[in-house]
């Protein structure tokens, strides 16, 4: 679609980039991030399919050739509706679902189809925050145990793990005595802080955030978003931020990819994609979301009905 970097090339040091042909970029929408010679995460033509229901049923293609890339310290927002395959991309990057085609490279190394051992080593660099803070924490493990888990798994001595857990709690602004408590003693926003702290524990270079603020109240959502931004400033970790909410993605992402039925339909800088989208589907997403202002909302509604409803009926 569009080259997100063309207006303001972030990396002028590489002289060859501006010459990057926008036509080729438009050909496969994924090539847009190709300005950086070494993206941290590089997904090329990723395909994922699941077995169909019933014997010898055709496989259901969930992702039909998705390409995207994330540079170190960058946030890529991935927007789509339910069933679009947006979460599947994150799960494929994490190695939780197998790719049936294409490639996933992390820091120049192919990681799709990595061995279980290699996967465990990679987990030092790629972490996750899931949507539902109620089921992503084991209800019967103390928060301290939950946080220490990734540290111990990577061979950090127990005593050091304890001090690092206390430090992690500070970083996500939770009280230190939280280590002795169970997840159920915390609210949704606090649990999500625990989940974020757990993802940060081993200082990953990429965190897959799968709808991390969708289950939260409006005001809590805002504070968790601020926390994620703050952490990125301080640690330089990159985010693959998956969400159904264009406004959340807009505030958090440098670039935005819009996914629809397993394909990326629009890919570009956050401001352009979320203010002045080119693809009709993105336009529809944008106009569907009601704004909290009756006057503007009735304009938006009228615009929506003019563009999409007239056609439907």
């Amino acid at each position: 679609m569009t080259d997100p970097n063309s207006p303001r090339d972030p990396n002028p040091a590489h002289g060859s980039e501006p010459a990057h042909d926008p036509e080729t970029a438009a050909g496969g929408h994924g090539d847009t991030g190709g300005t950086d010679p070494k993206p941290l995460l590089d997904v090329r033509d990723l395909r994922v399919s699941f077995p169909g229901k019933g014997w010898r049923a055709p496989r259901t293609e969930v992702l039909r050739g998705v390409s995207l890339d994330i540079r170190p310290g960058e946030t890529l927002g991935l927007v789509g509706e339910s069933g679009s395959g947006k979460s599947t991309i994150g799960r494929a990057v994490l190695g939780l679902v197998p790719a049936s085609g294409g490639s996933i490279s992390f820091d120049g190394e192919r990681v799709d189809g990595a061995s279980r051992r290699r996967r465990r080593e990679l987990s030092r660099h790629i972490q996750v925050v899931f949507q539902d803070p109620y089921t992503s924490l084991n209800p019967s493990l103390l928060v301290g145990d939950t946080l220490a888990e990734p540290l111990l798994a990577h061979g950090v001595p127990a005593a050091e793990a304890r001090t690092r857990v206390a430090d992690l709690l500070d970083r996500v602004a939770l009280p230190r005595d939280a280590v002795h408590r169970l997840p159920r003693e915390f609210s949704g926003g606090q649990r999500q802080r625990v989940a974020i702290a757990r993802a940060l524990a081993i200082a990953p270079r990429l965190i897959v955030c799968d709808e991390p603020v969708s289950a939260l109240d409006l005001t809590t959502q805002r504070t968790v978003m601020d926390l994620l931004l703050d952490i990125q400033e301080r640690t330089g970790t990159a985010y693959l931020f998956v969400s159904h909410d264009l406004s959340v993605v807009r505030a958090l992402s440098h670039r935005v990819a819009v996914i629809h039925q397993g394909q990326i339909v629009e890919y570009g800088g956050a401001d352009r994609v979320t203010t002045d989208p080119e693809h009709p589907y993105t336009q529809r997403l944008l106009l569907s979301a009601p704004v909290a202002d009756p006057g503007r909302q009735s304009e938006r509604r009228a615009e929506y009905e003019r563009r999409f409803h007239a056609r439907a009926h």
């Binding site: 972030p10 170190p72 406004s247 440098h254 670039r255 800088g269 956050a270 401001d271």
Partner: peptide
Amino acid sequence: GLLDAVLDDTPARAPWQPR
């Protein structure tokens, strides 16, 4: 406070810069 948390008018994030 509720209204302030609404993201409608939050500016989009600035383009990425190398660290």
